[in-house]
Simulated scan of single mutants.
Amino acid sequence: MARVTGVGGVFLRSQNPGALAKWYAEHLGITLSDFNGTAFAWSDEVPAGTGMTAWSAFPAETTYFGDGPQQAMVNYRVDDLDALLVELAAKGVWIDPKRQDEVYGKFAWIKDCDGNRLELWEPLA
């Protein structure tokens, strides 16, 4: 039987896609291509052996995506969560004061320039 084998992409709706793509490049270090996007290769898996992409459905009444009407949230793997949060705070990015430590990594949440809540995840080795 044919089946899904992973997440092939994440697509965000925006009134100003160029500005949103630039925000991600400036604040999260995403290298942009001509199409205001990027292709993430698993070759930069940090730490080694943690490469995976999670997919999950949440109930309609979840507050995990924040307080607004946001219909999707993207989880971004990061290599140094604490250092990135310091950099983002210095740039005035909204950062949720809540943090979460799990056996599979550390989590924090921010909002992009369109107000979308994002999850940042530093996997543990």
Rank of each mutant, 00 (worst) to 15 (best):
K98W: 05
D96M: 00
L20E: 01
W42G: 14
E122M: 11
T5F: 05
L28M: 10
W94C: 01
G8A: 12
E119P: 00
W109L: 07
V10L: 11
A21N: 06
M73Q: 15
F58L: 15
W121C: 11
E119L: 04
L85A: 10
N75G: 12
Y76V: 02
R117E: 08
L118G: 05
K91T: 04
A83T: 11
W94T: 06
V7A: 14
A39Y: 12
D79Q: 14
W121P: 00
A57S: 10
V7N: 10
R13M: 04
G37M: 09
W94I: 01
Q70H: 01
A60F: 06
L120A: 04
D67A: 15
F107D: 04
D82C: 05
L85V: 08
D80N: 15
A89Y: 02
A54Y: 07
D82K: 13
A48N: 08
G8C: 04
E87G: 06
T63F: 00
C113Q: 12
Y104F: 14
L84K: 12
W121V: 10
M73N: 09
T50I: 07
A39G: 09
A108C: 09
L28H: 08
T53L: 10
V93Q: 04
V74I: 14
K22H: 08
A39L: 13
G51C: 11
E87L: 09
G49L: 04
